[in-house]
Amino acid sequence: MAVTPTPESLLSLSITTRKIPLGCPIFDTFLRGGIPCNSITELVAESGCGKTQFCLQLALSAQLPLNHLGRLSGSSLYIHTEFPFPFRRLQQLCLDSPIGGNSDNIFVHAAHSAEQLLDEMPKIESFLVDSQSRLPIRLIVVDSIAALFRSEFDNTPSDLKQRSSLFFKISGQLKLLAKRFNVAVVVTNQVVDFMGESGSLNGLRIGNLGSLYSSGRRVCPALGIAWANCVNSRLFLSRNEEVIGAEISSENAGDGLCRRTRRRLYVLFAPHLPESSTEFVIRREGVFGVNR
């Protein structure tokens, strides 16, 4: 007897999708509650902008019992592809973050190649099913997806074809897990420098911003448009040095100017968020939004 497909009632899917908060009121208002479950969210930024910091903080806050958005109380699976995993930073966050949290509830797994990650998907699935001895997994982090793809593939048509087929396989599997277990999936992605005319393929505008700037350079997300199709939402973190005045004793900066790093989080595209941005800081205690 074949099972006939039946529609899901949208009313039974609660009116607001379950979200994993970041534990900072400014961010959580900005993201309308946090990172949505049952969906892939991508964090795009150059190195040193705070992608991993965001992911670690999410892994901690996923453990929190929540009052109004439904209890998450979940553990997380952190798949890292860039080595080493920042254990010390995680430990520091566990101690200092106002969220609290316990590193026992974060399961760390290393992936060295895209094929390996794909091969391990059944293992990951059975890991998600078997949740009796621990909190259920609520968050899967892949940090970073770009590292899996940027080393192994040449710029030849056949390699690119194989690569984009892998994108869709991996994202299909991740979305399947996200749907089946109602978990949030967060992947991080690197950027590449933007080259050439604004009309070229690289300059194809994806999302809300016409052009992305970080550290004073024009950048665009790595892995191209094929990967952009594989994620549901994309957030961009930027970092820009800003001169805030001349410094009398020029010890820090060689040119006698006092500089400050300003970081911003942009929504590039998301089905549930409008175009917006917020400033944030990274401190010992974690990442926090700044109201200005």
């Binding site: 949208l10 899917l13 009116i15 979305k175 749907k179 089905p271």
Partner: peptide, 8 residues
């Protein structure tokens, strides 16, 4: 694709 959001 999983992009349908009930809240939207």
């Amino acid at each position: 694709e999983g992009s349908f959001m009930v809240e939207r």
